[in-house]
Nucleic acid binder design. Structure first.
Lengths: 204, 204
DNA sequence: CGTGAGTTTGACCAGTTGGTCAAATCCAGC
DNA sequence: GCTGGATTTGACCAACTGGTCAAACTCACG
């Protein structure tokens, strides 16, 4: 294992290469379904070399998760309590949808893990995600109390945004197969915009 | 392998026991993550005995899938083209939500498979599900054309129903962790009812 | 250059896993 | 209660998989 003080040029490059390959393989097959050999081949390195940079397969996985969790939660962090409520939410929905389009592997990585009970992620989720959700739920509730958006259960509202947007990444094969030649991401933005506008616009 | 003509009492019972155990294990760990030994233990039978009833792990999996696919698609089949449009859709949403509550293992079994590219399911999906979706999309479109429900993309509408309802089963751990002591299924029915009523009720 | 730390890998190992097989056991129908 | 097919299993195997290790190689730096 390389020394941890001031990583060399090679260390930086190889760690990044390995994590990129790990994302590709883990997201496609899940933790158990992925093999270190697959990741090594994908990375263009030898298996012992991977294990020189990461002490175990498990370590690659958790390194990957913690590297990506921040990126994954950023769109929610950007919700601005001072902004125009309906527009803030609609913008959040679009950011999440963009992520499903641009980072589908990341989405599937998390999906794979959570569907199987999130054995290697529960701790991170029950701190970072939990706190963030509580914070933003409070914002949503204040908007509802102020009559800026329709009254609903704030957490279920957030779940619905996650479900609807991530569905396009996580179930990509199914969605594409059912839509034929039409690209799902052509109509999805407008669909979701309409959906949440109707849901949240207060009755005047 | 048992003869396939007129299964004996024992054959019926053991096949059912094995498939139940297989559902438990496959839904929790995915195809690759499940082991025949785990399924055998879960079923209370020996590993060679499982392989006496099913020629391979793969065969157990596909047998399970094809046994469950019909059940899985039933709620959609029940949408009645002659019924009151909005109520038909709302009832469908509730049926799907019920399935997430009552059959979460089945939901996760399919989720696991589809997230990983549905390598063992694409054929079934691209016939049964595809045809059914086309049929019901046409019904939705006729309802929209008649002004009974708001105009939207029918397929995206169906995707949204699947995403929102299955989310409660597939991401169960996450949802429950974030909701604390509150049961997600307490508020979900009303939340989804409101959601789709606002989305679909035509502007008068 | 030379040298020592940093990097890479072929060979190997132990544990797991899907699957086989011959022998043993069970059971329905005569 | 006998018998032949149905059922069950302990022992085993080959392939795979995560991980180790000593030896070889590379490279920054004096």
């Amino acid at each position: 294992m390389p020394k941890d003080r001031s990583p060399t040029r090679i260390q930086k490059k190889n760690r990044a290469t390995i994590l990129e390959a790990a994302l590709e393989v883990f997201s496609a097959h899940g933790f158990r379904g992925a093999t270190v050999d697959q990741i090594a081949t994908q990375a263009g390195l030898s298996k012992p070399n991977l294990l020189y940079y990461f002490p175990s397969k498990e370590a690659m996985f958790t390194a990957l998760l913690s590297e990506l969790l921040d990126t994954w939660l950023d769109p929610m962090r950007e919700i601005n309590p001072e902004g125009e409520p309906l527009e803030e939410i609609l913008a959040y929905v679009q950011r999440k949808l963009q992520m499903s389009r641009d980072l589908p592997r990341e989405s599937r990585l998390f999906a794979n893990e959570i569907v199987q009970g999130a054995p290697r992620m529960l701790e991170a989720l029950s701190t970072d995600l939990r706190d963030l959700l509580e914070e933003k739920s409070a914002v949503l509730e204040s908007w509802m109390a102020a009559g800026k958006i329709n009254q609903t259960h704030p957490k279920h509202l957030m779940f619905s945004i996650w479900a609807l947007t991530q569905h396009y990444a996580d179930f990509d094969v199914q969605v594409r197969m059912l839509m034929g030649t039409e690209d799902p991401f052509d109509a999805a933005p407008e669909f979701l915009e309409t959906f949440y506008r109707r849901m949240l616009t207060p009755k005047s």
